[in-house]
């Protein structure tokens, strides 16, 4: 029942975002509000088992979504801009020293690992290649490994992220 309601509410919100500007009740027309309600109930009936597969409702807390937006807007965006300047430099000069290293994350939930893996892929010099599903360690392809550091058994997040503590942020968002 909770799964059904959460899915229906989420589907309705997405519908409202996509139809904003259609009328005069707030931003929406009466027809869109009613049709959206009906459609989101049908969608929830079909897809509640996929949407709430793990049976945890942490992400239903709006505060976590606010944190996610803040995370995407400030630290993540700055790191992404740095990543692009870094890649641009390497595209032009051709200075690379690539390799695959192991990164221990210390995260526990699937969503946390997904967020960190995606963040890693879009931040400087790193690209996620694989996940160890038992220990949640990530295998990361680095485009430029520092001289001498390739002998280390496993990397800490501090070695990869210079400016911000990504795992800390993600722990607050997803765990």
């Amino acid at each position: 029942m909770i799964a059904f309601l959460v899915t229906a509410l989420f589907a309705y919100l997405v519908y409202l975002v996509l139809t904003a500007g259609s009328g005069t009740i707030g931003l929406w027309s009466q027809a869109e509000l009613i049709a959206g309600g009906g459609i989101s109930l049908v969608v929830a009936a079909i897809s509640r088992k996929f949407f709430c597969r793990t049976g945890e409702y942490r992400m239903a807390n709006p505060l976590r979504w606010v944190l996610l937006v803040a995370y995407a807007a400030v630290p993540f965006f700055i790191e992404m801009a740095r990543a692009n300047i870094d890649v641009a430099y390497r595209v032009i000069t051709g200075k690379i020293r690539p390799g695959i290293v192991k990164l221990s994350t210390g995260l526990e939930t699937d969503l946390g690992v997904l967020l960190l893996a995606n963040s890693i892929t879009l931040t400087p010099g790193t690209l996620t290649v694989g996940v160890d599903e038992e220990t949640n360690d990530l295998y990361v392809h680095m485009i430029n490994i520092g001289m001498g550091t390739e002998t280390k058994e496993s990397f800490e997040p501090d070695d990869v992220f210079a400016l911000f503590q990504f795992p800390e942020w993600i722990r607050r968002i997803a765990e």
């Binding site: 690379i96 020293r97 690539p98 695959i100 290293v101 694989g130 295998y139 390739e150 002998t151």
Partner: peptide, 8 residues
């Protein structure tokens, strides 16, 4: 080229 490949 690669200097290390832990996954392999």
């Amino acid at each position: 080229p690669a200097v290390v490949d832990r996954l392999q």
